[in-house]
């Protein structure tokens, strides 16, 4: 797996050579950092668009659950642009991508016996999705 150093937004990482961290530094360092990033391109999908989750099976990390792959849903919300976990782990690079809330009907995910009033939402990065 590629080796990369990961920054912490506007916070400074402590590095491994520095052995001691003051309590004030610890407070600053240990607050979970933001993974939001400026967009480098316009969002491909808009609220209300029908999208299909790609049928992908990467051997590395992905945040796309198996139950959604190949299923069609609707863009419910655009969550902004965030660090794409799949690229971080597979390629060792920080590549921001648009993140969406995608809602699926239960019958689309679980078949005709599912409760037709139930919906399931996932947070899906743009590379997981194609227009449906």
């Amino acid at each position: 797996m590629p080796r990369a150093r990961f920054g912490h937004g506007d916070r400074t990482r402590i590095g491994l050579k520095k052995r001691r961290v003051t309590p004030a530094e610890a407070d600053r360092l240990l607050v979970r950092q933001s993974y939001s990033r400026p967009a480098t391109a316009a969002a491909r999908f808009q609220v209300g668009d029908r999208v299909r989750a790609k049928n992908i099976h990467p051997v590395s990390h992905t945040r796309l659950p198996r139950f959604a792959r190949g299923r069609t849903g609707t863009i419910e919300r655009i969550q902004g642009c965030h660090v794409f976990p799949d690229a971080t782990v597979a390629e060792g690079v920080e590549r921001p991508e648009w993140l969406y809330t995608v809602t699926f009907e239960a019958t689309e995910l679980w078949g005709p016996d599912a409760d037709p009033t139930v919906h399931t939402s996932i947070e899906a990065f743009e590379p997981y999705l194609e227009a449906a």
């Binding site: 990961f6 590095g15 990390h61 782990v89």
Partner: peptide, 15 residues
């Protein structure tokens, strides 16, 4: 604290 060193991030940790 190992996360704060920048050796890896949350996604690498999850993997």
């Amino acid at each position: 604290i190992m996360g704060a060193t920048g050796e890896w991030n949350i996604d690498v940790g999850r993997y």
